[in-house]
Amino acid sequence: MATPAPRAVGADRLNQRPAGKLSSVTVAETILVFVGIPLAVYVLLALLIFLPGGRKRTRYKPGQPWDHAPIWYEPHPENVGAGGHEPAPGAAAVPGSSSAALGSSMYPEQPEERNTDTSRASDAHGAGGHGAHVAPRPVNAGPLGGARGTW
């Protein structure tokens, strides 16, 4: 009695090749998989990073020349004080330009607050434009101190 040949099961039924031989892959397919796919990933990432249209920010980095307009930050006025022991300080101003100091808050000083300051100043000095913000005149602060440093 002859033993019957074992039946092919599963995917082996479809492969009619001799045993021990793998399916052949061409050189082009190999290059496509092992070189093409990594290259495609790199190119995709590079496009995402370097294509224009993203965040356009030219923030200042130390070491660059400073080509911005001067900025002057001043502290928030203390509005919560109970007693008006001290008048609210006027805004700082750059003498060359007409730019007043930025308080660094999101909401600017309102014209009413500005008007109270200028009216108080004009009362004190006896002269002054109405409505328009004038740069504070230089006040002699006595013998100055301080320090200087370079880097």
Partner: peptide, 21 residues
């Protein structure tokens, strides 16, 4: 002044009593 690499601290007469040079 970041372009000139200089920093200056200036104190008024009253402030310099509490902040010596």
């Amino acid at each position: 002044s970041p372009g000139q690499k200089v920093v200056e601290v200036v104190t008024g007469a009253g402030a310099s009593r509490r902040l010596p040079d």
